[in-house]
Design a protein around this nucleic acid. Structure first.
Lengths: 91, 91
DNA sequence: CCTCGTGCTACGGATTCTGTAGCGCCTTGG
DNA sequence: CCAAGGCGCTACAGAATCCGTAGCACGAGG
C-alpha cells in the first residue's frame, strides 16, 4: 500500500478532509486545520498535488476527480467515527 | 475529527491494515510492517488499544469489533488505490 | 545449565513538526 | 503616488517524533 506513505503523515488526511466540500485558499485552509504551520501545510499540499489528488486554480485548492473519488472512499469513516467517539455530529 | 489525531500518525493505518485478515504477534506484526522500529510499533499498539480498536490475547494482537468495523469502512480505499497507482493488485 | 524465541524497553542520532517572523506580490483607497 | 492590508509562501530555531540497534526479562525445550 503505497497509499499509506502518502496518507500516513501528520495532517494529510485532515487537509484532504477539509477540502471535501468546497475549495479553500492557503490561508483559509490553514485556519480550517487549527492553524497548522504553513511549512507542513505547504509540504502536504505539494505531496497531494504530486499525487494528483489536489489541484490549484485561482480560487484556491480543490480536489481533482481522483481526489473526489478518494474522499468518497473515505466517507464511511465519518459514519464509523460517529458511532465510535460519541454519536453526535462530531466533525 | 478526533479520528485523524489517531490515524494521522506514521504507521497507524498500516498497522491496522496488516491486521485486517488475521491476528499477529508483536514480532510478526513488525515484519509485516517492513520492520518498523519496536518503539513506534509499541506506541501505536498502545494508542490503538486505548482507542478500543485493537486488543491483545495469547495469540497476539487482533482487531476488536469496533476495529473490524473501521477496517470495513476503510475497505473502499483498496479499491480506490488500485485505480490510482497502477491497477494491479497493489497491496 | 544453556539456548532459543518472545514481548518489549533504552537510548542516541536523524528526521519531522511547530511557531513565529517576514518577504514579494497584488489590490484597495486616500 | 503611496501607504495599508491581504495573499501565497519561505526561513529558521527549538521541540517533538521516529529510526535503528542493542539488549533485558521471561518462559519453553533440551
Amino acid at each position: 500500500m503505497v497509499l499509506f506513505d502518502v496518507l500516513g503523515r501528520r495532517w494529510t488526511l485532515r487537509v484532504l478532509w477539509e477540502l471535501r466540500k468546497d475549495p479553500a485558499t492557503f490561508r483559509a485552509l490553514r485556519e480550517r486545520c487549527d492553524g497548522v504551520s504553513p511549512t507542513v501545510l505547504n509540504e502536504r499540499l505539494h505531496e497531494l498535488r504530486d499525487a494528483g489528488i489536489l489541484e490549484q486554480d485561482e480560487s484556491g485548492y480543490r480536489t481533482t476527480k481522483s481526489g473526489a473519488a478518494l474522499l468518497r472512499a473515505l466517507a464511511p469513516l465519518q459514519t464509523w467515527a460517529n458511532g465510535w467517539s460519541g454519536g453526535a455530529g462530531t466533525d
